[in-house]
Amino acid sequence: MSAVLRAQALGKRYKQRWALQNCDLDVPAGRVVGLVGPNGAGKSTLLNLACGMLTPTTGTIEVCGGRPATGPNQLAKVGFVAQDTPTYAALSIADHLRLGARLNPGWDDALARDRIRRLGLDLKQKAGRLSGGQRAQLALTLGIAKRPELLILDEPVAALDPLARREFMQDLMEAVAEHELSVVLSSHLVSDVERTCDYVIVLVDSRVQVAGDIDDLVACHHRLTGPRRDPDTLPAGQHIITASHTDRQTTLLVRTDTAVHDPAWTVHPLGLEDIVLAYMTRPADAVRDTRPALEVLR
């Protein structure tokens, strides 16, 4: 399958600080990708690089087969809903739809009007008077009605209350199913991603820690508990993500492509949240020393 987003040695530096380093990604088309990581990890930077709001300091990024924002054709392929979902406060919803229609060759006006009607919004209302949830919905409508191949959403629900959050996500998923979009969305909440995405990228401290299909990730990560032992004695195929020890017991979180046969271990399955948290809490130097860039897991 062709890649919707491909990055090689991608990096972005602001003055002295690296916001993103050594980022290699190959995200297949047709997926709903969740980008998770703590605040300040570089999620926004990666998404802004993908839509061309930022230009890379190092490396390359390709989205839908072209360099981001290099021309009208490329812009038409990618929809972007920015953080805090900015809209023109003085313009009405109808004005926003007209803006979309005037500025996008592939604009689907029927789709946009239908969405606004279903959301129960008044076309004459000024965007500045909308609630946070309504504003996010308006921004999403603009993003979808443009009919892009890839829709990028940067923390679209961060400012919403739990109910509006769930509604927004459900609505997004319906649109994705209906229009066969690829989606990349960022969130600092794993639960949002677990509910909606089938592919995850974990970004911590400006580096990609792990990226892959969620089912594959869940299948190959295990928690092992057993009598205390030195982690270095593990077989070659098992990579330790985190390790903790008590006087008698050792608990390891490992990634392995093969089954664990050692009878000394009790093997527990892991949820996505456990896996993501393990990658987030792992000491930063462990990443740099052992594996600077993890391969996509299959």
Partner: peptide
């Protein structure tokens, strides 16, 4: 200042 350039620059028109 208001971030609306994110909206404007991601339509089908170059900056």
């Amino acid at each position: 200042e208001t971030g609306t350039h994110y909206l404007a620059w991601n339509q089908g028109v170059t900056r």
